[in-house]
Computed example of a mutant assay.
Amino acid sequence: MKAAHRAEAAAAGADGARARPGSRKALVAVPVVVVLMAVPLVLGAYPVSTMTRVLAFAVLVLSVDLLTGVAGLPTLGQAAYFGAGAYTAALTGIHLTTDALAQTVAGLAAGLVTAALTGWVAVRARGIVFLMLTLAIGETIHQIADTWTVVGASNGLAGMPPISLFGGPPLIAAGFVYWWVLAVAITVFAAVALVVRSPYGRTLRGVRDNEPRLRALGYRPALARYGVFCMAGAVAGAGGALWAAHARFVSPGDLGFEVAALALLSVVIGGAGTLWGPCLGAALVLLVRDNLSASIGGHGPLLLGLVFVAVVFLLPRGIAGLRAAGIRRRKERVA
Rank of each mutant, 00 (worst) to 15 (best):
L101P: 00
P212Q: 15
T52N: 13
F166S: 15
V105Q: 11
G253A: 14
R6D: 13
K2A: 11
G167H: 11
I94S: 10
A173S: 05
A145E: 03
L255E: 01
T52F: 08
A17I: 04
W120G: 02
A4W: 02
F130T: 01
E332A: 03
M51F: 12
I172A: 13
L262R: 13
G297V: 12
V48K: 12
L303Y: 07
V268E: 03
G16Q: 05
A190E: 00
S49N: 05
L302D: 05
A17F: 01
L41D: 07
S164K: 14
M160I: 10
K25R: 06
G318H: 03
V123M: 14
A320K: 06
V195K: 02
L304S: 01
V311S: 06
G281P: 11
V268Q: 04
G270K: 13
R215N: 07
P221L: 15
R197N: 05
L275I: 09
V250Y: 06
G72N: 05
A191E: 00
G85Q: 08
T134D: 04
V113K: 07
A272T: 07
V285R: 13
A4K: 03
L315A: 09
A153I: 05
P316K: 13
E139A: 05
S49F: 04
V188K: 04
L284V: 06
L66G: 02
L157K: 03
V177H: 02
R248K: 11
P162L: 15
A26T: 00
A190Q: 01
A90N: 02
R197F: 02
A238V: 00
V228M: 15
F130K: 05
V311C: 06
V54M: 13
V42M: 07
V105I: 12
T97H: 08
R6V: 11
A216Q: 08
L255M: 10
F313S: 10
A19S: 03
A232E: 08
A7C: 04
L43C: 04
L275Y: 01
V235Q: 15
